[in-house]
């Protein structure tokens, strides 16, 4: 498999197509079952309130999976994604819209690898909350 994006198509500063996803309760439950992370913070509103949240929150890894899917669908080849590192900052509540974004920050012609700044955000009452911050990914292109 080869990437649909070619190294020569990229320039530093370029943004890749962002992807939005509304975070639904049933998806978070499905993620808990699929991943094995059954922390009640992601399933039980009463528990979430007892630790100071208005209701359940999404798993950090659920947000990271959306960010990773955004990268691999843009690349057209999941094997092209070589590494990713992220920090989880803001939480995500149910029915919020999570937007995954990335921007090219470096290009190495000798390895045909690009580095990207990656992040995920939600808009909460007009303010941008950084769910994933200071993320960095490395990809290898055709």
């Amino acid at each position: 498999m080869t990437t649909t994006v070619r190294f020569e198509d990229l320039t530093v500063g370029q943004e890749i197509p962002s992807r939005s996803k509304v975070v639904r309760r049933e998806e978070v439950k499905a993620y808990a079952d699929a991943s094995g992370d059954q922390n009640p913070l992601h399933q039980d509103d009463n528990f979430a309130r007892s630790v100071g949240f208005p209701g359940i929150i999404g798993h950090g890894m659920f947000s990271m999976a959306h960010l990773t899917s955004t990268l691999t669908s843009w690349l057209g080849d999941p094997a092209a994604l070589k590494s990713i590192s992220v920090q989880f900052r803001a939480v995500v509540y149910m029915d919020e819209t999570l937007v995954a974004k990335a921007q090219v920050t470096g290009l190495d012609p000798s390895t045909r690898r690009a580095t990207l700044s990656v992040w995920a955000e939600v808009d909460r009452a007009g303010e941008r909350q950084m769910v994933i911050k200071n993320g960095r990914a490395e990809v290898e292109l055709a």
Binding site: G60, M61, P78, A79, K82, S83, I84, V86, Q87, F88
Partner: peptide, 16 residues
């Protein structure tokens, strides 16, 4: 564990 949050995550893939 009640005080724990997931702070950071990193993966380095060699193949799918």
């Amino acid at each position: 564990y009640a005080l724990v949050v997931h702070g950071e995550q990193e993966y380095e893939w060699r193949r799918p």
